[in-house]
Simulated assay, not measured.
Amino acid sequence: MSDEPTPPPALVKCLVWDLDNTLWRGTLLEDAEVLLPDGMRELIVELDSRGILQSVCSRNDHDLAWSRLEELGLAEYFVLPEIGWGRKSDAVARIAERLNFAHRTIAFIDDQPAERAEVAFRLPDVRCYPAEEAASLAGRPEFSPAVSTVDSRRRREMYRAGFRREAERTRFEGPDEEFLRSLELEMRIGRATHEELSRVEELTLRTSQMNATGVHYPDRVLRELMADPGHEVLVVTLTDRFGPHGAVGVLLLEKRPEVWHLKLLATSCRVVSFGAGATILSWLVDQAARAGTHLLADFRGTDRNRMMEIAYRFAGFDEQPCVCREAATAPAGAEGVQRLHLAPVRQPAPTYVRVEAVRLTGREPADGVVTSRV
Rank of each mutant, 00 (worst) to 15 (best):
T6Y: 12
P8T: 11
V12A: 10
W17C: 03
L29F: 08
A32K: 11
E33P: 02
D38K: 10
V45P: 06
L47Y: 04
L47S: 01
S55W: 04
A65S: 08
A65W: 06
E70Q: 07
L74I: 05
L80D: 07
S89R: 04
A91G: 07
R94G: 13
F101D: 13
Q112D: 15
E118L: 09
R122S: 09
A138T: 07
P141A: 11
V147G: 09
G162R: 07
R164K: 14
R164N: 13
P175S: 03
R188P: 10
I189Y: 01
G190I: 08
R199F: 07
V200A: 12
V200F: 06
T204G: 07
N211W: 03
P218V: 03
E224F: 14
L225C: 04
M226F: 06
A227Q: 14
A227S: 15
D228W: 04
T237I: 12
L238T: 04
G243Y: 05
H245L: 14
V248Y: 05
V248S: 07
L265E: 00
T267G: 10
A276I: 09
L281E: 02
L281C: 04
R290H: 14
R290P: 05
E309T: 02
E309H: 11
A315E: 00
A315D: 01
F317G: 00
Q320Y: 11
V323N: 13
E326I: 05
A327L: 03
V355T: 11
V355L: 11
V358C: 14
V358L: 11
R363H: 15
V369F: 08
